[in-house]
Design a binder for these strands. Structure first.
Lengths: 370, 370
DNA sequence: ACGGCGCTTGAATCCTTGG
DNA sequence: ACCAAGGATTCAAGCGCCG
């Protein structure tokens, strides 16, 4: 199949800055091999959701239950991954690279298949969402991140990596493998004619900005086989790269076309609005316990030692005289009969015979974080 | 092999709080099935390092090049993963769970195999290192995280999750899937007799603290098939859990034994963690009527007094405007047009001119029960 | 114009027990 | 095994309205 397509398409020019309609595997097989610099792929995650989920206020969560995300089994999903990855691999230039994004539902299977096909892992990157959806039933951890894999076509590939550009984006220090970015909401989130979201899983432009700045050069060809509403294309155009999109759903293509038509190419790098320095990072008290800076059972003292409390293993305090337990702030407030209390300055530890506020320990943690 | 071991070991007591010597698969197969609450595994990462790496100042990076981390191929590594995971799975109780930690070199293969064997993914967790090793060559992103997978034995497992304890550790907001913790350095890092690090990949105790507080109860059995220098055992002992370690290398076992002997278990009362409402005894609403805390005919009010209902002698409510009767939950849900409703917090009584949720009465009953 | 309050929303494998 | 019922459960942002 690939062969026949190859023969007929070798003479064909690359359909740059267009959105191709149809199945991505067929469309990729119809393009000339070794012609693309970078592939960014956001394949279906195979979420396998069961029933409905309500928020505590009884509102219904709008789940991703689209037909395109349903697979019969892991084997079906693996077959799908194998096929589209093989088609993508054929399109890549020898020094090309690929990005794939996913969640724990699918990313392990996709990652293993990447390795099986000879792609060479460069980094896995964690997109830490600053505003994820909470876990409403309190049954698991907040699913607060997604994973991206960055891999070159082969171990020998001389992949593109704009080290200095990413370092500049990161205020002068080396870009790390964890990226804190908000999810796509507000004005950036595309709406359909009814005012509903046009695509259930639209990715933020900031994410693509970082990918494209970091791993392509101006003029490069970036292909996205699961184009959706065209975030890859919009950012590629802004940044002076060429794109090729492939999308099966008419409605998504339509939205993407209009979106990209509105995009203006930037003269120079856009501002990274998301890197604004936040206030001092929040350090939960429990972290002092986890890190062994305070031991469970250790005694804390209020100013003048009027009250004492013991540290518990989960980072709460307990005062046995009054049977009060809770956070450092809660226990301080209760003991003082005050509406609130800053536990960080209220509670002290003994160090060399002196009382020292626990805020000192927090400052140590913050120093280590920088 | 497993069969024979199973037969002979069924009578054997579990070797609690010991470090078993030898191959982890053989040792696991010699233990009784369905006997372990939690497995924490830090398997070889199959790093596939080529050549030496030097820092910008020309000093040599002490790489992980131990024999135990070398595998001939992905197929070899997959076979190894399949075998130890199958042995681990057999040991888990039906409601047991497993944690596996890895990097992009191995975690995708391990994750896929977990799913293939029927483990049910609960979360993938990112350990975001506050002080990672930089990328000295500037050829990739700083590899600043590792990935953990938390999975239950099966989809049906009623896994342990101490939601409230983790929420407390995180200062009152639910714990997310990304954990910021420093790598293991300084005093915590174990040294051998020459002053060199005793193990190349020693994990921080803070990481295990969070895992064990969050997903086990005091007295549970935690098994670590790649025990190394015994971080899992040390933290399990501190926190009043039992451990079983398996380690092949004599030198690591020796360090681990000495380390764990030095650990003191925390007092029982500080190991008590914040409990959830779910764990509290169930109090039927009718009991409030039986006890005379509410009189038949008394009026209950929704928030803002939008709806009213009368208490009946059998502990049901009735709303005469809409002719709805039933439990406190059913009537609340029907009146609100909601799929469900927690009647305990929905309905209020008037006390001294104020509306007070009936949950307060339930708390009185519970207090009297103790 | 600006701040505060309330409402909405986001790739989600999201309950437990008793009959 | 299924079914019915009890009742536990959320964080950060953006936007619009109102004073």
């Amino acid at each position: 199949m690939a062969r026949a397509a190859e023969g007929s398409s070798r003479a064909a020019a690359l359909p740059l800055n267009q959105i191709l309609a149809g199945d991505c595997i067929e469309q990729m097989n119809a393009l000339p091999e070794a012609s693309v610099d970078l592939i960014f792929a956001d394949p279906p995650y195979n979420l396998q959701l069961r029933g409905d989920l309500h928020r505590p206020d009884n509102s219904l969560v709008d789940a991703v239950d689209d037909a395109w995300d349903r697979f019969g089994s892991f084997a079906d999903y693996d077959r799908f991954s194998r096929d589209w990855l093989a088609a993508a691999r054929r399109l890549l230039k020898p020094n090309g690279a690929i990005w794939v994004i996913g969640s724990y539902h699918n990313i392990f299977r996709v990652g293993a298949e990447l390795q099986n096909q000879g792609f060479w892992m460069l980094n896995d990157v964690v997109w830490r969402k600053s505003n994820p959806m909470p876990n409403f039933r309190g049954k698991r951890l907040t699913n607060a991140h997604e994973t991206l894999i960055w891999a070159s076509k082969s171990e020998a590939s001389k992949y593109t990596f704009n080290y200095e550009a990413l370092k500049a984006l990161n205020e002068g220090v080396q870009m790390r493998s964890d990226w804190v970015l908000p999810i796509c909401t507000g004005n950036e989130r595309l709406k359909d004619e009814h005012g509903d979201k046009a695509h259930p899983t639209q990715k933020p432009e900031a994410l693509l900005h970082r990918v494209i700045i970091g791993t392509t050069n101006p003029g490069d060809v970036v292909l996205d086989p699961f184009f959706g509403t065209g975030t890859t294309g919009a950012v590629a155009k802004m940044l002076g790269r060429n794109f090729i999109g492939i999308e099966r759903e008419d409605s998504y293509r339509k939205v993407a076309e209009a979106r990209i038509a509105r995009v203006r190419r930037f003269d120079r790098d856009v501002l990274e609005t998301t890197t604004s320095k936040r206030a001092e990072p929040r350090v939960p008290f429990g972290q002092l316990v986890e890190r062994g800076m305070l031991r469970p059972g250790e005694e804390l003292y209020s100013q003048g030692s009027r009250f004492k409390a013991r540290v518990r293993a989960d980072g709460t305090l307990t005062n046995k005289d009054s049977d009060v337990s809770g956070s450092i702030h809660q226990v301080g407030a209760r003991l003082e009969g005050a509406p609130s209390c800053n536990g960080w300055t209220y509670w002290h530890i003994k160090r060399e015979g002196k009382l020292v506020p626990i805020d000192l320990l927090r400052q140590q943690v913050r120093a280590e974080m920088n």
